[in-house]
Design a protein around this nucleic acid. Structure first.
Length: 598
RNA sequence: GGUCCGGUAGCUCAGCUGGAUAGAGCAACUGCCUUCUAAGCAGUAGGUCAUGUGUUCGAAUCACAUCCGGAUCACCA
């Protein structure tokens, strides 16, 4: 008796094909490639024979016939085959499918890989404390969160970190506007969430600043000069200096406003189900990195220009000369990032470091990683920029100053409202109490939103049209959640009727829909591995949708309980349970919860 | 201008380690609920895969060029 496992069925096929080729043609291939058989043909695995024509001097169809016949006679798993031109379509024996399903069904940890001894840090979210989160941040947060879950499932030890940008000129801008025009307003007196309140003053700063520039231009100043000499920008710079000196009043204002913002952020994070193991604050790390500059100067990696500024020449890497420290000895972005990366490595000693940051910073990360390599940092090879595309509106890029941003809190609230309306219209949960209903609305709202943002390849920019609400039907999170809820209903009924989920004897003849389900289920672990390798939660999204679709076809095609064959009933209950469990796991990797009923 | 990313159905997206008549969802149109949840299923219609050339038995997929869109090339972060 041969023991199968979901991981090896393709390997067995490949090895048997290899044997067939060696036996009949006396050649051997480095790698046998199998592809899933197209729906319109019979079979599940397809081997393409065109590439063998030269070596064998036989026609593609003849090669297919030869290998197919060999497999049917010699492979313990192959049940049949057909050849269409150069395509050898292979079917498995039903006993093989059942054995395969037995492995899946009895494996609690199906799709979860054993610890691989590697650790990885995922840094994501990284908000500024001068404005609330928007749709772009949501994509970042969901990607980072999902990636963390996927890496964990594939065997990594994962540390989730967030680097909060809580200092700098932009923070001083909202502080200044608040100090001048705030009238002591607080989240309590205004009824606004703290992050929104801070954001309001950031916008006010910009409005006032623009007025001042206009006034100076009126007086005959050039635009460039006016932008530098407007009273508020000078005042904001003064505020930044005061902050850096630790001026009591300035620091107190900074702490007060940041406190409001953090309260607002934590409310949002909780709502969207995102958390971190460690949060770094730029106010603590912005001075780091200068010792690394010193080190690099000594080792000749960096060089000084006459004005005392420090540079690195990265033309060998196809990059430019890059400033790493200003002439006055103050840091630039890359200085801080060098220091923070070193700090992260000192703190955690991970094997890999990921940064989930928009693709507008592609160049920055190329430079950062190149410098780390030049400095001989061994961890440099484990650094990856998870570059994702912007979320654009039909009108183009979101711009906070032009008021075209889609606010995260607003969007979430809107999704909850839509979920509530939809659910009430359908009237399926009229017996739910208030809390149960609320939980469901949130699950559905977040399911729809997260799925919407995670179904697209992270690297690509995507379009969001605020005029069209995010769907709850079709290729969506709720569709998959619905499939889960449907199966839970089946499971409850089975339990009531005392029907046990069991797998029939090898003689059982499977229905097409049942085979289709087992095949789709069997793909799950490799999808998890692919998603982890490619840093692409979208692969899990696509898979979850595919699985739900295949189940719904099965559900429509066969009757689970009314089949006279009790073996069939018990198998279908088992299949349903395995699908539900796999959906739950797959959606879990996307940070999406599943409802028992909906 | 240099570099990078993208251009697939009316819309939003898969497919891109080369392989069968290019796939989903939405929108449109047809059917299917007195049997397990119709947030579902089945079907119809919709495509010169931006354009051109090349490589190959075979190209949406690879190479080169062109056009279009975006990002970046800051002593901003």
């Amino acid at each position: 008796m041969l023991t199968l496992s979901f991981m090896t069925i393709e390997d067995i096929l490949k090895s048997d094909i290899q044997k067939a080729i060696t036996t009949h043609f006396d050649i051997s291939l480095d790698d046998i490639l199998l592809q899933p058989t197209k729906k319109e043909f019979e079979g599940f695995y397809t081997f393409v024979t065109f590439s063998l024509t030269k070596a064998t001097r036989k026609s593609p169809a003849e090669i297919g016939q030869t290998i197919g016949s060999y497999l049917v006679e010699n492979s313990p798993v192959v049940g049949g085959f057909n050849v269409v031109q150069g395509f050898l379509n292979i079917s498995l024996k039903d006993s093989t499918w059942l054995e395969l399903f037995n492995d899946i069904f009895s494996d609690q940890a199906f799709g979860t890989f054993a610890a691989n001894g590697q650790s990885v840090m995922v840094e994501f979210s990284s908000p500024n404390t001068n404005k609330p989160l928007h749709l772009g941040h949501l994509r970042n947060n969901f990607l980072g969160d999902s990636l963390s879950r996927i890496l964990k499932a594939s065997g990594f030890d994962v540390v989730k970190t967030c680097l909060v940008n809580d200092r700098g000129i932009h923070i001083c801008k909202s502080m200044l506007a608040y100090r001048e025009l705030g009238n002591g307003e607080t989240p309590e007196t205004s009824g606004m969430k703290g992050d929104h309140l801070a954001g309001k003053y950031y916008v006010i700063f910009d409005i006032e600043y623009k007025k001042q520039i206009a006034a100076l231009i009126e007086q005959g100043m050039s635009e460039e000069e006016a932008a530098k000499k407007a009273p508020w920008i000078l005042e904001a710079q003064t505020l930044l200096q005061l902050w850096e000196k630790g001026d009591e009043g300035t620091v107190a204002l900074w702490q007060k406003m940041n406190g409001w913002v953090y309260a607002g952020f934590s409310e949002t994070y909780q709502k969207i189900g995102v958390s971190f193991d460690k949060t770094y604050y730029e106010s603590n790390t912005y001075l780091l990195g200068k010792d690394i500059i010193e080190e690099g100067l000594n080792s000749g990696v960096f060089f000084k220009k006459p004005d005392n500024s420090v540079w690195i020449n990265l033309s060998e890497e196809g990059l430019d000369e890059k400033l790493v420290l200003r002439g006055d000895g103050t840091s630039v972005y890359i200085t801080q990032d060098l220091g923070t990366t070193e700090l992260k490595n000192d703190d955690f000693h991970n094997d890999r470091y990921l940064w989930v940051v928009g693709n507008e910073q592609d160049y920055h990360f190329k430079v950062l990683f190149a410098i780390l390599k030049r400095l001989g940092r061994t961890y440099a090879d484990g650094c990856y920029h998870i570059s994702y595309g912007m979320v654009d509106l039909p009108s183009g890029k979101m711009k906070s100053r032009e008021g075209t941003v889609v606010d995260a809190d607003d969007l979430v609230a809107q999704m909850v409202q839509t979920a509530t309306d939809r659910t009430r219209d359908l009237g399926k949960i009229d017996d739910f109490d208030g809390d149960e209903a609320k939980l469901l609305y949130n699950q559905l709202a977040m399911g729809a939103l997260k799925y919407y943002l995670l179904k697209v390849d992270p690297k690509k920019r995507m379009l969001f049209n605020p005029e069209e609400s995010i769907d709850f039907q079709g290729h969506t999170g709720p569709f998959i959640q619905y499939t889960y809820a449907r199966i839970r209903s089946i499971a409850r009924k089975a339990e009531q009727a005392g029907i046990l989920a069991t797998i029939p004897a090898p003689e059982y003849v499977l229905k097409g829909a049942e085979r289709e389900l087992i095949f789709t289920l069997s793909q799950y672990p490799s999808k998890v591995a692919d998603a982890a390798r490619e840093f692409a939660p979208s692969l899990i999204s696509q898979y979850a949708f595919e699985l739900a679709k295949v189940y719904n076809q099965f559900y429509a095609e066969v009757s689970i309980f009314s089949d006279p064959d009790q073996d069939a009933v018990r198998l279908r209950v088992a299949l349903s349970a395995a699908v539900a469990e796999t959906i739950r796991k797959a959606l879990g990797l996307l940070g999406i919860e599943v409802p028992e009923r909906m």
